[in-house]
Nucleic acid binder design. Structure first.
Lengths: 239, 239
DNA sequence: CGTGGCAGAATTGTCGGACAGTCCGATTAT
DNA sequence: ATAATCGGACTGTCCGACAATTCTGCCACG
């Protein structure tokens, strides 16, 4: 059933080296914050050229496992930031031509859950971020881009308040995909702004009062509105 | 309020070049399947050294935007495979020390939704993959690793059958995180195997008969069982 | 006409070395 | 103690080179 021979992989040295370093990191023998040895040093240790080490390092840097603070020369072991990894996911999804419906269904699964947990577990600072994002949306009356950014921040704040990193990281890429579609909706559907503002208000209130079920329900209504808005926008676009 | 000056970013050339090429790809002026110009050619076009181009290329290769078929020399534009990107996400989550509860809550949000849509939209081939994964789980009586792999495949098959790429890609990283926890559960909780097999059977049947609500409900029960199994396993582990 | 084989060109992976710019740490001056 | 200075270390980039492998066009052959 299984093949007798597997394609032999003499993977290039830079990939092998990247894997070796990665193992040290995920195995925690290189701990977060540790400075990596210099490139020349690594080249000596691995017995390869510095150019080869550099290509390996690029790989880990992209993964977010290595990084350096602004204006810092030496690389240090870092934990991948949610922003970095989620932007990769959303780009992948964009290249796969996901439809609005697919995006919407995923949001419909994740966001109400996040809202529910947020109501149960939010702390004062998270609540403040939430109200702040809501206020920023209301203030962005004319500026569509600012309004869309505020909506994204609102979702991000809810996810953060949920106290669940997995939910937050799963939800983050959706925001980036939502932005362009939402821009068109806000631009073309007049009632969108007021409906969003109202939903955000209700959700924030529920989270503030720790009413999980209310938070979930209003988030569901909020997301459902997006679908309606998208359909309206499509009609106007085709005119 | 805002700073008068922002830190100027003289991003290294290899990063700028990576961005330029990436823009060509996401902007579709380099289309999927196209062969990339040779490294020397790119170096000439950008007016930099080949080493610099190589570092830029590594970056895009990691993102899955560039790749090459087995035994192929020249790079071609590819669409990022779900496996690649989701493994990145799960590694990020692992490094952030997510708890089982966080993972479980996210699964509880995503998997029932995926099951529901799968029942509504699955085709024959997807149903076959589903039953096959279920059969493979039953067959893996002794082999824990094989059983866990079968469970992962089952979830993957459900997500694929949902016909929603966003759900599928959001759910994939969770599988990789689930595996180690599930291994311990299956090893230590005797009744786990039979309960999983039963749940998989019910879910598969519901998806086969296109009963969305049934599929969702049974998937919820299935996931809930994981939490109970995890708690039992913890008790045994502390003994 | 299709097919296989072959030589040469092209391309990648890796190497060694080099150099300017900048960051860091230690030393010295105020 | 704080500030200025200086040398070393390190990164970003470049140049040139070479072996191994793949690609390509061409030719002979069935």
């Amino acid at each position: 059933m299984t093949d007798l021979f597997v394609p032999l992989d003499d993977r290039p040295a830079y990939r092998q080296i990247a894997n070796l370093i990665e193992q040290r990191i995920v195995g925690r023998s290189l701990r977060t914050g540790d400075a990596l040895p210099s490139e020349s040093d690594l080249a000596r240790q691995f017995g390869v050229n510095r150019s080869t080490v550099r290509e390996a390092i690029r790989e880990l840097e992209v993964h977010g496992l290595l990084g350096r603070g602004r204006g810092e020369k030496r690389l240090r072991v870092t934990r991948p930031e949610p922003r970095r990894v989620s932007s990769g996911v959303s780009r992948a999804l964009a290249l796969h031509d996901v439809t609005f419906l697919e995006l919407w269904e995923a949001m419909m699964a994740l966001e109400p859950a996040a809202a529910e947990y947020a109501a149960a577990r939010r702390n004062a600072a998270q609540l403040r971020d939430l109200t702040r994002a809501g206020a920023r949306f209301k203030r962005a009356a004319a500026d569509t881009d600012a309004a869309v950014a505020a909506v994204v921040d609102f979702f991000t704040a809810v996810a953060a308040a949920s106290g669940n990193q997995v939910l937050a990281l799963s939800q983050a890429p959706l925001n980036l995909l939502l932005a362009p579609a939402l821009t068109r909706i806000v631009d073309r559907v007049p009632q969108a702004r007021s409906r969003i503002a109202e939903a955000q208000g209700k959700i924030t209130a529920a989270i503030k009062l720790r009413k999980s079920e209310q938070a979930r329900i209003w988030m569901e209504k909020h997301i459902r509105d997006f679908k309606r808005g998208h359909e309206l926008e499509l009609l106007k676009g085709e005119r």
